[in-house]
Nucleic acid binder design. Structure first.
Lengths: 156, 156
DNA sequence: CTTGCCCTTCACGTCGACGTCAAGTTTTAC
DNA sequence: GTAAAACTTGACGTCGACGTGAAGGGCAAG
């Protein structure tokens, strides 16, 4: 395997170009223990080919809302397959949070859809403001989905 | 309508309790022009009942990734139905971004699912590390979904 | 009148994922 | 051999959505 000429691995600039992230970010990832690199005698970082996909994984987990700390704890499991029951538990927790976020965002998207529908039809009919007579009907649709910050007290 | 006894409207503390956000956040929203309030002679804020659902809407749009600036520009359209073609355009843009985010997150969730599946089956078979022989098979599944930061240069 | 809670307006602090400048070293190109 | 490009560590700056006091005013209860 490994028929790509890479010698002792690519340096940080090439990895940055190939992944689309800045060198600053790559050093930051290393600082956060998300990424390791071999060092040449003069201290320059050299990365293996696998680093490219690893960066993409890291970016995906960031996009999924995970913190660098969480990613650092979970990537050993995801990348190397090293799974303890505790890590699996954490993975499941993150997965479920992600699931709820997706559900909330989906509700919000649908809400935006209906808003757009209503407003554009108002534009077509020339009505500037749709609170003509059926205002109450709309106030009901204001409630979207979860995402309440702290439901400590709601019923008086 | 409005059969709830509220006199001249609730003050900021009650609104905070009923929505679950802090008073600091409410004042911040007003500062960002997301929210308006009547003022008593001594300068205290008094809110109508509709403020409660408005807060929930604001929180949802925050959760959807909108900035306070974007929310401030779009809420007139969403709340009052005041829509110009430009606002509709912006709404559509935000909706599509939201859509893509949902798709990315869904892919990441599915990826986490397969990771969990694989790792837990490894636990069950007692294998500590699944890179036994079919390591190449797995490296393929590392690629998840979009979310590449800046695809400036990928093909060399 | 005082206690106490809630309210007001500054105004600086925080946290996370980097950006950005500085100053020096190593590698590459000619 | 020299200049430019790429690299190194270090350290302060940024941005957004608030947190967290500080210093004072408003108002019902005792």
């Amino acid at each position: 395997m490994q028929n790509t000429r890479k010698g002792s691995g690519m340096r940080i600039g090439e990895l940055a170009r190939r992944t689309g992230v800045t060198t600053r970010a790559l050093r930051y990832y290393e600082e956060q223990n998300l990424l390791t690199a071999e060092r040449s005698g003069s201290g320059q970082r050299h990365y293996a080919e696998t680093a490219v996909e690893r960066i993409h994984l890291i970016r995906q987990l960031y996009a999924a809302g995970l913190s660098s700390k969480a990613i650092a704890e979970l990537t050993p499991c995801v990348i190397e397959g090293r799974a303890t029951p505790e890590l699996l538990q954490r993975l499941a927790v993150e997965r479920n949070q992600l699931d709820r976020r997706i559900a909330d965002l989906t509700h919000t998207r649908d809400r935006l859809d209906s808003v757009i529908d209503g407003a554009s039809s108002n534009l077509h009919t020339g009505a500037p403001c749709p609170r003509d007579a059926n205002a109450e009907t709309r106030t009901d649709s204001y409630r979207l989905a979860g995402t309440q910050p702290r439901p400590e007290a709601a019923a008086g």
